[in-house]
């Protein structure tokens, strides 16, 4: 079995603002200079709903990956924030109007079961990939799991969370039983409930981030018999470059190994970063078959995850 991510597509909104423009619009907490020094130049802001972005990403994926819609066995729909998991309406019952089910219908995924993944913050899509892998391992007949994530911050809220600049966006990927690329070699994740209150424990989360990340990544690499220098690239979640400089030293990875280009230009696309970065690294012809890739991610909740991938 070559469980892996066989295809990726993503959608970013057409509207993009620089950190300076965000500051002028009152959409930052810190100064634009500070965020610039942390590695951010701009972000994307959607005027479309999250479910529409998700639909567009999924349509593009199905159009390109050669998998018939009715061959998809499972649809996993991830979103970091609560509004991403229902289609707003006046009536209370609209709380049960799920974008995942709507997507199944719109894409004609007639044989796909549908599950939403929430309460994992920016880890949603990474968890979806992990759940998809486990699902395929546990269901011998299943071949394809479509994973989608989409988030759009409410209009007018600050575009900065914990000193990171946030973009709206959606990403869709296909986890396939027999994938010709991006094989999932190993995965580790940890959830630390002590930090569940992201407001009250903000300082503690900032402090816990680094040692937890270090231990998790080292545990993953050790378990997989992979040395840091064996990694072709590290696929970051697009939090500040400054924080990556610190983390890279902790895990013994060189700066040149970090695929960092998207941090400044795309910002932190909530749950989608690692996979957008994988797609862009592939498009940039940075990878050859057999390359080992590390995806690391953190999400409020508090969740840390690291995935080792063989391209």
């Amino acid at each position: 079995m070559n469980l892996g991510v066989s295809a990726i597509e993503y959608v970013l909104p057409s509207k993009s603002l620089s950190v300076r423009e965000l500051e002028q619009a009152g959409l930052l907490v810190s100064s634009s200079e500070q965020l610039h020094s942390f590695g951010f130049d701009r972000c994307y802001i959607s005027e479309e709903s999250a479910d529409e972005l998700a639909r567009r990403a999924a349509v593009a994926l199905l159009g390109n990956c050669g998998v018939r819609p009715d061959a998809v066995d499972l649809l996993l729909y991830a979103g970091a924030i609560a509004p991403s998991h229902h289609i707003a309406g006046e009536h209370f019952l609209s709380s049960f109007n799920y974008p995942a089910t709507k997507l199944q219908y719109e894409l004609s995924l007639t044989h796909a079961s549908v599950v939403g993944i929430s309460q994992a913050g920016c880890m949603g899509l990474t968890y979806a990939v992990q759940v998809a892998s486990d699902y395929l391992r546990g269901n011998g007949q299943a071949q394809y799991v479509l994973c989608v994530s989409a988030d759009v911050l409410p209009n007018g809220v600050p575009r900065e969370i914990l000193y990171n600049v946030i973009s709206d966006g959606a990403c869709a990927l296909m986890v396939t039983r027999n994938s010709s690329q991006n094989r999932i070699l190993a995965h580790r994740s940890v959830t630390k409930g002590y930090y569940w209150d992201c407001i009250a424990r903000k300082n503690e989360i900032l402090a816990a981030y680094f040692p937890t990340a270090k231990n998790l990544v080292q545990d993953l690499l050790r378990g997989a018999g992979c040395a840091p220098e064996d990694l072709r690239i590290v696929l970051p979640h697009n939090v500040s470059y400054r924080s990556w400089e610190i983390l890279l030293d902790l895990i013994g990875v060189k700066k040149e190994q970090l695929f960092a280009a998207n941090i400044s230009q795309k910002g932190h696309v909530i749950a989608a970063d690692n996979w957008i970065n994988l797609k862009d690294a592939m498009n940039a012809n940075l990878l050859i078959p057999g390359d080992k890739l590390l995806a690391f991610n953190f999400g409020f909740g508090a969740n840390w995850a690291a995935t080792l991938i063989e391209h």
Binding site: V190, K192, Y194, F210, K214, R242, E245, I246, D249
Partner: peptide, 21 residues
């Protein structure tokens, strides 16, 4: 159950980068 990690042992350069941040 808080699962608090031990502080990571880092080189001086990284420590000061964290301090500055």
């Amino acid at each position: 159950k808080r699962a608090i990690e031990k502080p990571a042992i880092v080189n001086l350069e990284t420590f000061y980068l964290f301090v500055r941040s």
